[in-house]
Design a protein around this nucleic acid. Structure first.
Lengths: 121, 121
DNA sequence: TACTATATTCGAGTAACTCTAAGTCAAGCA
DNA sequence: TGCTTGACTTAGAGTTACTCGAATATAGTA
C-alpha cells in the first residue's frame, strides 16, 4: 500500500495532482486508512498510471473521468473503452511525431548557433 | 505577408494563442498594416514556429519571452541562447522518450481489451 | 506533555490559453 | 449614399488543470 507521497514518487507526479485526481473520482478503487489517509494498492497505482498516461495524451480530465466511470461499470463497457483507448493511441502516435519534429527543430537551431560561436573562435 | 488567421493555419495553432503571444512581445519583428492589423513576414513566421516549439517543450511563456529578449539584443547573446536551446533539446529528448512510453502503455491496454472482445466472439 | 512530521480539507491563486463583447474599417451592393 | 457583411482590433471575463496556503488532525518522539 502506498501513501500519496509514495505514489507521487513512484509515478513522477505531484502530490497535489494525485489529490486533485482522487477528489475528482478518477481512482474508484482508492482506499482510506483508519485516519482517512489515501492508500493506493497495486491496482490503484496502475490505474493512476493509466490516468496519467491518458492526461498526457491530451485527454481532458472530464473525459478521463468518463473513461473511469466506464471502467467501474464492468465488462459491458469493454467495447466503449476499447474505442476510447484506440483513439488515444492515435493521439499518442501524433505526439510522438511532433516530439520528433521538435527535437529536429531544436537540434537544427543549436547547430546554427554553435557554428556562429565556433566562427568567432 | 500573413495575417493572424493565415499564420494560425500555417503553424497549426489558434488565432487566440497567436494574439496572446504577440501581446506578450514574443515576436519582436511583428509588423502592422495601415489598419493596425498584425502581419507576419517569413522571418516572423519562423520565429513564431520556434516560440511554439519552445512552449511545447514545456518552457513557460515568461522564459520564452526572456529568450526572445535575448534574440533582440543581437550577437552578444549567442552563447546564452545556445545554452537555453541546448537545455530545451534535452527536454525535447525526454519528451520523445515519454511519448514512446505512452504509446507502448496504450498499445498494451488496447491489446488486452481486444483479446477480451475476441474471446467473447 | 510538547514538538515534529505528515496527512487532511477547503478555498484561493496561477499559467496559459479561450472566448465574448464592443468597436473599427474597407468592400460590396441596393 | 447608406447599409450590411466580414475580418480584424482591444479589454476583460471565463476555463482548465493544476498549485499552493492555512487551518486542522493524528502519530511518533524527546
Amino acid at each position: 500500500m502506498y501513501t500519496v507521497k509514495q505514489a507521487a514518487q513512484r509515478l513522477g507526479m505531484s502530490e497535489y495532482t494525485i489529490r486533485f485526481y482522487t477528489d475528482k473520482g478518477l481512482i474508484p478503487s482508492l482506499k482510506r486508512d483508519g485516519n482517512n489517509r489515501r492508500l493506493f494498492d497495486e491496482e490503484s497505482l496502475h490505474y493512476l498510471a493509466t490516468v496519467k498516461c491518458l492526461r498526457e495524451c491530451g485527454m481532458p480530465v472530464d473525459s478521463v473521468k468518463a473513461y473511469c466511470d466506464l471502467c467501474s461499470q464492468g465488462d459491458s463497457t469493454i467495447q466503449a473503452r476499447y474505442d476510447i483507448l484506440l483513439k488515444q493511441t492515435e493521439a499518442a502516435r501524433r505526439q510522438l511525431e511532433e516530439a520528433q519534429a521538435r527535437l529536429k527543430h531544436l537540434n537544427h537551431k543549436v547547430e546554427n548557433l554553435r557554428r556562429l560561436l565556433d566562427g568567432r573562435g
